[in-house]
Design a protein around this nucleic acid. Structure first.
Length: 664
RNA sequence: GCUGGCGUAGCUCAAUCGGUAGAGCACCGGUUUUGUAAACCGGCAGUUAGGGGUUCAAGUCCCCUCGCUAGCUCCA
């Protein structure tokens, strides 16, 4: 079930086929760590019959594909253990995933508990200890259906029925035949025997919909992971622990950056230190906007719902919009001659009239564009907006700063001609890469998301828009992948997937091609030919939202903001209260030079002050005592470089100022 | 929204079977005057998220609401 590979020619060439194991053995390549081979473009395990003359390469337990084989095999062992411990539980699917595997179960009664996981894990270890081989068997569709119908495995029956006619159906068994054998319909591949599974761990349990559709019944999903060795598993668990330590919600509290309160669910309160970082990010972008030719506007917060009816958002995204009512809306408007045919429906009336908090900036920018006659000479017009947006996100999806109900995008729209699109994309990409380099986020994968099934606009229009984005990428000479059907309903988009220090990938910035809004707002410019033309609109954001970017960046840098972004760049620590006067003069000098400095003049011992300062991860700690006062120095301890020794005050000031601008 | 889990002082966490709500940090006061990762003493701090119920007795058991959380679904 790893993938839906094809194997339609098995009947014709049976005579010359041998198990992959024999093929590997014949070539003298069989060793303990071989779990599968790659041949004819697919991965098959050692149980699978292959052409005896096939060319192949071996896949070892430590190879990427080998680990997938191990994980999927572990999923089988887990399902075996679950069905043994919880009779009546039905199996569904159990694929290998990025960090491990899962298996979805239909369990009668209550779900699995943490204690259940421990029990299941122990039973799995028993199965592994018995080291029985995985056995592969090819059966007919009817044999497979009969077997799983008899077992009452209704989900498996559904899966078998969905396998296309003519495709080979294989079963995999492990355990002792006639005794404790376990069978699953499965395409493989699997490891040779259960004993190959040396390092397994169940991690969590959660609900998941059958076939990923929320209209379907919810199943119980158990997540686990497996590695070729105990050491690799431990390293993985260590990384998870590290990620927990860097969780931006934890760092936000520790560093006094932001917090949440029940009075405004999923809406962050930025404290002074967090607000500084937030504003510094915005300032950074504003500076780049000067360089890249953007103009910033400020637009209203709340709008007559007519605006969103024009844009098409009302109706489609009604349930995600915050609406405002005012006292006067609660009364029925006076009808014509005081007579009304239908009773007053307050709900409908409010829906029609109450203002909406803007969930995006684009409609306002269309209003601005359309507010007067425009010339082709004005294009491309790049209009930026740091407006506050609100979206009522469903309860289960909000998460720290990464998914909130009020946020700010580093939003801009580019109104231009069709011909200008590739050039604009290239220009955006240049800025995008400059920004991410400045944050040392340098591994970026680009995906071109193309037309989805549910969409508006003609195929010709989509052909043109997708071509424009593609040409932009090609012009910038950047590699990209296609994400078929992943585009927005109104146009294709570029997604930027950014990898952080812990090798996790995040989608942050975006660029979207939108031929829809200019149409709906009937936007026009006068061309060189004196005639009216429809402009094209590009939506784009570099960071995405400030909030989400901050969550990713916090975890990326572990709270160690670079000097240019740190809310406090240096903290003065006096050795004793006797040095307060000198410390104060250092503090004032730094501040007078525009350095963000603080001081700890408390009666704590120096060790305690250093410890406190380290918790806040200030880039510089400046120890001052009688010796420094005497020499006019500060003893500098750098967060990143350690003890730098005594330094003249002017030298320190120069050093910090040199680090106070973002890298370019 | 769905399936689980959780909610105790500003923070991190205790509280046995349903039997007097407690500790460290932070904060406030005092002692100490310190040279590179936590000095010492004392004090303040709680409608145990909110509401209802069971019970002689509820932080603990049951129900509802709110919030958080792991996933699922969603993300214009």
């Amino acid at each position: 079930m790893l993938s839906t590979g094809r194997c339609g020619r098995s009947k014709l060439v049976m005579a010359s086929r041998i198990p992959a194991r024999d093929l590997v053995k014949n070539k003298g390549l069989l060793s303990d760590d071989v779990v599968a081979i790659r041949t004819g473009g697919r991965v098959v395990d050692l149980h699978t019959p292959v052409d005896e003359n096939a060319t192949f390469e071996v896949i070892r337990a430590t190879d990427k594909d080998g680990i997938q084989v191990i994980r999927h095999s572990t999923a089988h062992v887990m399902a075996d253990a679950v069905q043994r411990l919880f009779p009546g539980t039905k199996v569904t699917i159990g694929p290998a995933i990025e960090d491990g595997f899962y298996y979805d179960f239909d369990k009668p009664g209550p779900g699995f508990t943490e204690e259940d996981l421990a029990k299941i894990e122990r039973t799995m270890l028993d199965v592994i200890a018995k080291d029985t081989p995985f056995r592969r068997e090819v059966v007919s569709r009817n044999e497979a259906l009969a077997l799983f119908e008899k077992m009452g495995e209704t989900f498996k029956v559904e899966i078998i029925k969905a396998i296309p006619e003519g495709e080979e159906i294989s079963l995999y068994r492990h355990g002792t035949p006639g005794k404790d054998e376990w069978v699953d319909v499965c395409e493989g591949p699997h490891v040779p025997s259960t004993g190959f599974l040396r390092a397994v761990k169940l991690t969590s349990v959660a609900g998941a919909y059958w076939r990923g559709d929320e209209r379907n019944p919810m199943l119980q999903r158990i997540y686990g992971t497996a590695f070729p060795s105990k050491e690799a598993l431990e390293e993985h668990l260590r990384l998870i622990e590290e990620a927990k330590q860097r969780d931006h919600r934890k760092l936000g509290k520790e560093l006094d950056l932001f917090f949440f309160d029940q009075v405004a669910p999923a809406m962050p309160f930025f404290l002074p230190r967090g607000a500084f970082v937030y504003n510094r990010l915005v300032q950074y972008l504003r500076d780049l906007y000067v360089e890249y030719g953007y103009e910033e506007v400020i637009t209203p917060q709340a709008f007559d719902p007519k605006l969103f009816r024009t844009s098409g958002h009302l109706g489609n995204y009604n349930e995600n919009m915050y609406r405002l009512w005012t006292e006067d809306l609660l009364e029925a408007p006076a009808g014509e001659k005081g007579e009304r045919k239908e009773p007053f429906d307050l709900g409908k009336h409010l829906q029609a009239t109450s203002f909406a908090l803007k969930p995006m900036n684009c409609p306002s920018h269309c209003v601005i564009f359309g507010s007067r006659k425009r010339s082709y000479r004005e294009l491309p017009w790049r209009v930026a907006d740091f407006g506050r947006l609100h979206r009522y996100e469903r309860g289960g999806v909000v998460h720290g700063l990464s998914r909130v109900r009020t946020f700010c995008q580093d939003d801009a729209h580019i109104f231009c001609t069709q011909e200008q699109v590739p050039e604009e994309i290239a220009r955006f990409l240049k800025m995008f890469y400059a920004v991410y380099k400045a944050f040392s986020l340098e591994k970026i994968d680009i995906r071109l998301a193309t037309r989805p099934e549910k969409r508006i606009g003609s195929d010709e229009l989509w052909d043109m828009s997708e071509k424009a984005l593609r040409e932009g990428l090609e012009q910038a000479n950047l590699p990209f992948e296609i994400a078929p059907g992943e585009g927005a309903f109104y146009g294709p988009k570029l997604e930027f997937h950014v990898q952080d220090a812990l090798k996790r990938s995040w989608q942050l910035g975006t660029m979207q091609y939108d031929p829809n809004l200019p149409e709906r707002f009937d936007l026009k410019y006068t061309g060189e030919d004196g005639k009216e033309h429809r402009p094209v609109m590009l939506h784009r954001a570099v960071l995405g939202t400030i909030e989400r970017f901050l969550s990713v960046y916090l975890e990326h840098c572990g709270g160690n903001f670079p000097t240019w972004l740190a809310p406090t760049q240096a903290i003065v620590l006096t050795v004793s209260e006797k040095s307060e006067e000198y410390g104060r003069s250092v503090l004032e000098e730094l501040r007078s030079k525009g350095i963000r400095a603080e001081a700890d003049f408390s009666a704590d011992k120096l060790g305690a002050k250093i410890r406190n300062a380290r918790v806040f991860r200030h880039p510089y700690m400046l120890v001052v005592g009688p010796k420094d006062a005497e020499a006019g120095t500060v003893s500098v301890r750098s967060r990143d470089a350690g003890d730098l020794g005594a330094m003249p005050r002017a030298e320190l000031v120069a050093r910090i100022l040199a680090e106070s601008e973002p890298p370019r």
